[in-house]
Nucleic acid binder design. Structure first.
Length: 272
DNA sequence: TCGCTTGTTGATGG
DNA sequence: GCCATCAACAAGCG
């Protein structure tokens, strides 16, 4: 689940269910806790009050009136409140009990991602420093400037968290499909018009994706809605979607709407 | 048993 | 140094 849009939802969820509450107890699976022992996490959080959360890319930043809790959701992470789901689950890796009586659970089936606790700005910057600007808020000028400094596959760039923070495999396919750019297009072969379209489309897709919870069932005209279904057709032109590998990940695209520029398809990377 | 999965990292090779 | 690919991490599903 978790890409930028999902983590934005977690941010609102955390704000609703944890911000302003005081920690009464902590349980954590030691294998998901990346930079502390369970005892250290507990003493860092106990009696602390959570403040409003923040998000950078796919990271959820949860400050307290003391240290800051950082959550990364990997591929299968989720947040659950006891107010909505009364029973605990075997994949709950972190449970925070509040003096108010309810509890927040960080659930993660596969243990990609994890939990960090940081005590100062340096420690926090050390973890988040490598990230590029957040994909939801980057303006056109900076986007074009960064793109201008980069070569290689366009999908790899969109998903590179040091280039832009927040876009994963599904959103990258969605943005490229809506922008009508073939995922294997090399950045150096993108026209100025395509570069601007890419930014405009990314902005629109991300804004619409964060409007509510789980955009995939709501956005029926999107690629994401049919992505991965057998014999899926392009929601725009109804040609059969194709599947390939780009940037090391399974990639769906429409061979009719998303054409590879000639210079990319025939002699990509070759010398003149 | 194998292949596949919305993420990240490190090794390797061109 | 830059970029692409692949294995590993981990757990579940078909």
């Amino acid at each position: 689940m978790p890409e930028l849009a999902d983590v934005e939802h977690f941010k609102r969820f955390f704000s609703r269910h944890a911000a302003g509450k005081r920690v009464a107890g902590v349980w954590v699976d030691p294998t998901i806790l990346r930079n502390a022992t369970p005892d250290a996490l507990e003493s860092a959080l106990l009696r602390r009050r959570f403040e409003e959360p923040d998000r950078l890319g796919k990271w959820l930043i949860c400050p307290t009136d003391g240290p800051v809790l950082l959550l990364h959701f990997g591929m299968t992470g989720d947040l659950i409140s006891s107010q909505e789901g009364p029973t605990r689950h075997r994949h709950d890796r972190l449970i925070i009990e509040f003096v108010e009586g309810d509890e927040l659970r960080y659930r993660n089936m596969r243990k990609l991602g994890g939990v960090w606790i940081v005590h100062d700005e340096d420690e926090r910057a050390g973890l988040l420093q490598p990230l590029g600007p957040d994909a939801l808020s980057i303006d056109r000028g900076e986007f074009l400037a960064r793109l201008g400094r980069r070569r290689g596959g366009v999908k790899a760039a969109l998903m590179d968290q040091t280039f832009l923070a927040g876009i994963g495999n599904i959103l990258a396919d969605e943005i490229l499909w809506q922008a009508r750019v073939h995922p294997k297009t090399r950045i150096e072969n993108l026209s100025d018009q395509q570069r601007r379209t890419l930014h405009t489309t990314m902005r629109r897709v991300l804004r619409q994706a964060v409007e509510g919870y789980d955009y995939i069932p709501r956005r029926r005209s999107w690629l994401s809605h049919v992505r991965g279904m057998p014999d899926a057709a392009c929601p725009r032109c109804h040609r059969r979607l194709e599947r390939t590998v780009a940037a090391g990940r399974t990639t769906y695209f429409c061979p009719s709407c998303q054409r590879l520029p000639r210079s990319s398809s025939s002699r990509a990377g070759a010398s003149p």
